[in-house]
């Protein structure tokens, strides 16, 4: 059929096995859909349960917002507060702003991050609040 077919065909088979490794290795091990919980005490006590931006915006842009905050706080005008369009004031801070309300890292942040195999190293330095629930 072909030259060296007794070498080439086994190598093709090995290659196909290796190349499709992610597919067959994870069969039946589909991770559960992420279920981020926003029922922390702080959020539950809010009069209007709104973040600084709508959920869809936050989902896609939260990293950009955090980076922008860092540039402003560390290198920009050093201001620590931001005001939303409807007049609510927040700290421009992962620890003291976002995680003030979203204090449940394992049940909120980690839900989507683990599902997507994203390992942000924010918490190597920034202190996550102690889990209560």
């Amino acid at each position: 059929m072909m030259y060296d077919e007794n070498k080439v065909i086994p190598i093709i088979i090995v290659f196909v096995i290796l190349a499709t490794f992610p597919l067959w290795y994870n069969l039946g091990k589909a991770a559960p859909k992420p279920d981020p919980k926003i029922d922390t005490p702080v959020i539950q006590a809010l009069p209007e349960k709104k973040c600084i931006e709508p959920k869809e915006v936050m989902k896609t842009a939260h990293m950009k917002i955090l980076d922008q905050w860092r540039m402003e706080v560390v290198r920009g005008d050093f201001s620590r507060q931001m005001t939303t369009a409807d007049g609510r004031v927040f700290e421009k801070s992962l620890q003291k702003g976002c995680m003030n309300c979203h204090s449940n890292k394992a049940k909120f942040c980690d839900q989507c991050h683990n599902y997507m195999e994203v390992k942000p190293f924010c918490w190597d330095c920034h202190n996550a609040p102690k889990e209560t629930n």
Binding site: A45, F78, Q81, R88, V89, E91, N100, C101
Partner: peptide, 18 residues
């Protein structure tokens, strides 16, 4: 303060010595 209007307490402290 934190529950009713997050961040407002910081805003009401002495203005920053900036």
């Amino acid at each position: 303060f934190e529950i009713l209007k997050p961040g407002a307490l910081e805003a009401q402290l002495r203005p920053p010595l900036m």
